[in-house]
Design a protein around this nucleic acid. Structure first.
Lengths: 172, 172
DNA sequence: GATATTTGATATGATGCATAACAATTATCA
DNA sequence: TGATAATTGTTATGCATCATATCAAATATC
């Protein structure tokens, strides 16, 4: 770097095209959120987007989406299940689960095994690599992602939040 | 109705193709959620889906999505703003906001008015019908939707939940 | 006046999500 | 046993959401 810290590359730094607000002029007021601040669904959605964004950043080296992570977790805890069972548990429709499994299988994270018991169904298993990736993902999520949420809310609040969200997901 | 309460229409009632589990046989265990129960993002997502579903049911007579409702709310509280300002505040990208406004405008819920001040921009306003629909929607949402959440969680918990979600949306 | 930015808009692609339909397999029932 | 129905995984398809590049008109900056 031969440029000073404060230098600005004129080719990259766009000049502001907005009229400079005069010193005494009234600043353009922030928009009023109104009843939106009291709408639970609105904050729920925006918080969810933020959390998913952070999740993706956290495990970006492993190239895992939240949905993929949830599949790996479930396969690890529930060996011997077929596609329908895993998909239903996660609220994924069977047709949409096919492409998702194709992705994981093509990366050698899991495998479909024809059941000898019922030859219509595929038993799903984690591969060795799948277990390794899952282990690394779990560590990253716990030490970075969930840890950050713990910092922001505090452990007690975080637990209360989780409990309420689970209640809504279960009973609403 | 000429059928008794317990009668089953054989044309509509599919017979179970699943093998009846023998009395003493081990019941197929419920899937283990494992670490998924501790993953905030997972419960966040599932709760959000439930809340949005209930919102859609609640205002189904008005044919409003959560996003459309949020636009109407914001227009009502912030008259005289243009598309960019409204879209940015709601986290909607300008290109995607165009079709959304087309929908609302075609239903005569809002209108675009060319600004005499800056003839590039459109000032957005609620129509009379838009205000009426918004008023009805607000009543439905408050008396049915939010009321149900209040029942489920209790007012204090609901407020705490809202505060935490807003914190995450703002600072995470 | 020359150049750059902003605004609304269009086109386009990726992704998520939902339904219908199909072949292979298995279960049920007469 | 044979006919019928249900289940499983799959494909095709459509819709909604979301993101980026690009454009013309209008405005701001230099």
């Amino acid at each position: 770097m031969t440029v000073s810290k404060t230098a600005i590359d004129p080719a990259r730094a766009p000049r502001p095209a907005r009229k400079e607000r005069a010193e005494g002029a009234p600043e353009a007021a922030e928009l009023q959120m109104g009843e939106l601040s009291e709408l639970l669904g609105y904050s729920l959605k925006r918080a969810q987007l933020k959390v998913f964004e952070d999740f993706l950043r956290t495990v970006s080296t492993l190239q895992l989406t939240p949905a993929q992570f949830s599949v790996l977790l479930l396969l690890d805890k529930n060996p011997g299940r077929n596609q329908t069972e895993i998909a239903n548990t996660l609220g994924i429709l069977r047709p949409n689960f096919v492409a998702m499994l194709d992705g994981l299988e093509s990366r050698d994270l899991c495998a479909r095994i024809r059941s000898t018991n019922d030859r219509r169904s595929h038993i799903l298993v984690l591969t060795e690599k799948g277990r390794a990736v899952l282990a690394r993902a779990k560590k990253l999520v716990a030490s970075k992602h969930e840890a950050r949420l713990n910092e922001l809310l505090g452990p007690v609040n975080r637990a209360a939040l989780l409990a309420m969200l689970a209640t809504i997901a279960r009973e609403f």
